[in-house]
Design a protein around this nucleic acid. Sequence first.
RNA 1: GGAGACGUGCCGGAGUGGUCGAACGGGGCGGUCUCGAAAACCGUUGAGCCUUUACGGGUUCCCAGGGUUCGAAUCCCUGCGUCUCCGCCA
Length: 444
Amino acid sequence: MGKRSEFANQRTNLMLDIRMIRDNPAAFDAALFRRKVAPVSAQILALDEARRAKIMAAETAQADANAAAKQVGAAKASGNEAEFERQRALVASKKAEITALTDEAKAADVALNDLLLTIPNLPHDDVPNGADEHDNFEIKKHGSPRNFDFQPVEHYEIPSVMPGMDFETAAKLSGSRFVLLSGAVARVHRALAQFMLDTHVEENGLIETNTPVMVREEMMYGTGQLPKFGEDSYQTTDGWWLIPTAEVTLTNIVNNATVEESYLPRRFAAHTLCFRSEAGSAGRDTSGMLRQHQFEKVEMVTVCHPDHSDAEHLRMTACAEGILEKLGLPYRTVVLCTGDMGAGARRTHDIEVWLPGQNAYREISSVSTCGDYQARRMNARFKPTEGGKPEFLHTLNGSGLAVGRCLIAVLENGQQADGSVMLPEVLHPYLRGKTTINANGTLV
RNA sequence: GGAGACGUGCCGGAGUGGUCGAACGGGGCGGUCUCGAAAACCGUUGAGCCUUUACGGGUUCCCAGGGUUCGAAUCCCUGCGUCUCCGCCA
């Protein structure tokens, strides 16, 4: 498997727009400051300056040697033995110098890139400043929590659900943060995934995609899981990484590609397993199936022209919201503040579904536009129709939705006083007309 | 798991040490012709980096990394990848 340094070598100077930093270091630092990142432009520019000086020195030496090497050929052709020997010696003497300078240039380049790889994306201007989730800004609220004439419970406490949601056996098989679903619960879970995918494909026009869940290491760099967040994912003994989300596979479809502008926008949807180590979340959401090492998700990814990413962001958010609306689940949508956004995002909309058992809105989808951040890492570009140089495209990703969490929401919102669960109408066709999990846990 | 073949530009495909960023063909783009289109003909057509106000200049790239050589797409080594056959297998 590829080593990180090798990879960084190939991706010379792409991680962030170095020219933008050169032109306006203060603005760069100011944008990062909004994410609580200490100023780094001075360090970047120093490395950049050193790098360029080394490159110039190395290339000058190389140019000299190339010119002399040409003279060698000419001298030999004309039979000038003395000149031949003289130029030959000249080239030979340049060799050590070139090697040293080239190595230095390469080292400077790698140093710069290693630094750039760790720097998060710059937030969009319209993203609110803030420290954590308390500073997120609500932009939409849909539906209102149902009035229960009894005390609603959490999903794993619903009498009709309990037989089909077995954490003990899952723990025996695999450990904590796993679940074994069976019977009606497993069936509803499957129905949800099918419903989501069908809706995205048939109504939202996304391209149904079935992807690998194990990927090469460089793909994890492409979408930004590496180098900083390797702890959050699993790697096999063969070097493959298990995807924490299909964002990794869907987005990397355009890894190292230059597509025609007419290819854009390209909108994908995939239903996959996702794997997360949940390192650092010890003690959080340990009850129920809210936070698992392995879960299913229907993911949406769009690659598009830079001019369209803001509109696509709204579109994708609406696609995710539409699923909840069809399911009749109350939700709200928030814009994440600078302190709560993921590293790769320029702007993120979190969609939070109402969970009556928790008496709270909980995240069920996260829809982000990444601007050119991932595209630069992946070297994903498009060729403008009007001609001209290839440009980096923009990438967006969003859950549409997390299937397990959606199951929780459907169960909690549909629970009845007698312990049964009434299921959303849109799922009925996927359940062969059945509508309810009765108090015994049977689908009827 | 065993055996073999291969890895060149948008595509196909030459090239086995200098004159190769790369023949030839296809495609794309521009033009001539045409009422228009097709055909034909002519021309043109990669990317990154450094430098330059600009024009331009330099440098790197023929899977990747090393090596041989005055000089490598071409020779050697290693790695990665793809394909084919056999075995095994959902």
